[in-house]
Nucleic acid binder design. Structure first.
Ligand SMILES: [Mn+2]
Ligand SMILES: [Mn+2]
Ligand SMILES: [Zn+2]
Ligand SMILES: [Zn+2]
Lengths: 144, 144
DNA sequence: TTGAAATTGAGAATCAGTCTCAACAAAATT
DNA sequence: AATTTTGTTGAGACTGATTCTCAATTTCAA
């Protein structure tokens, strides 16, 4: 499904639909959750498909532009992405102990943000909310 | 005021209060708003004080640990910091056109987040909310 | 099928941030 | 006060993510 969107996007810009770009998108769509460019690159090589880091990075930028994926977060170890076509918009809780990511969504929270924007005369387009702390498991561990 | 806190923090850890560390903290406290390591480094040099990039980075890490400053955001051009002792906690709206940053705070929003954490059994410690979009000025420019 | 135009991949370049280590300074011991 | 111990500094090397370069290759409209 994302394949169509991507092809259309590329053609509209006079860009080309190549095997490499298709392989990269396919691999992203066929795996769940968050990912980073380096692991994606390695997974694609493992499958015997040919690609290069340069192409992975270039394609990730294109996929961001066309809205099929999103940059979730820049960390000290690089950028984390996720695909948006599957998931609807959501925010994240990040466990500082184990790195586990909990996804959540609250309509009320979203509305409230819109309200804040209006009050400031700001035209909101997108947002990221990250709550850092400790997940259930890690809270238990700490108690002992 | 932050000077005291920093000295205490350093001593508690068997670390030393040096001219370089004091100069860096002073420069941060005496300037308003957000900053990045490189400009901070340049400002300090301009003043004729002696320092190195290494020391700036090292000291910023210490100041984060002791809570006097915070990493606001990692961008493609590096990390943006701000000092917390002055400002209370707040969130950000970031204009994608001109880079302008609007700070805001909503009690309701904070409470709502606490509620979301409780529902997930997550122990929230801190968070970052960034809303991206267009500020008043840039909205006007776009219309014309 | 052909050729102009876009894309690819290997490796060089860039850039923020960290690390190394010898010279130096602060605290602790004598 | 002199000496020893230990932490800090700064220049520059290093790292790792990402982008750039450019010759070779591929796409696709005609
Ligand atoms: Mn997610
Ligand atoms: Mn701020
Ligand atoms: Zn955890
Ligand atoms: Zn603006």
């Amino acid at each position: 499904m994302g394949k169509r969107i991507f092809s259309k996007f590329l053609k509209e810009r006079g860009k080309r639909v190549t095997k490499e770009r298709e392989a990269i998108l396919q691999k992203i769509l066929s795996s769940r959750g968050h990912f980073d460019p380096e692991s994606l690159y390695l997974k694609i090589k493992e499958m015997g498909l040919k690609t290069s880091r340069a192409s992975v990075y270039r394609t990730l930028n294109l996929l961001c532009e066309c809205g099929l994926i999103e940059r979730v977060k820049k960390t000290e170890h690089g950028t984390i992405y996720e695909h948006t076509s599957v998931h609807e918009h959501h925010d994240h809780m990040l466990c500082m102990e184990c790195g586990n990511i909990i996804e959540f969504y609250s309509e009320t929270l979203e509305k409230l943000q819109e309200g804040m924007c209006k009050r400031q005369g700001f035209q909101g387009v997108s947002h990221t909310l990250e709550i850092r702390g400790y997940c259930k498991k890690c809270q238990k561990k700490k108690r002992t």
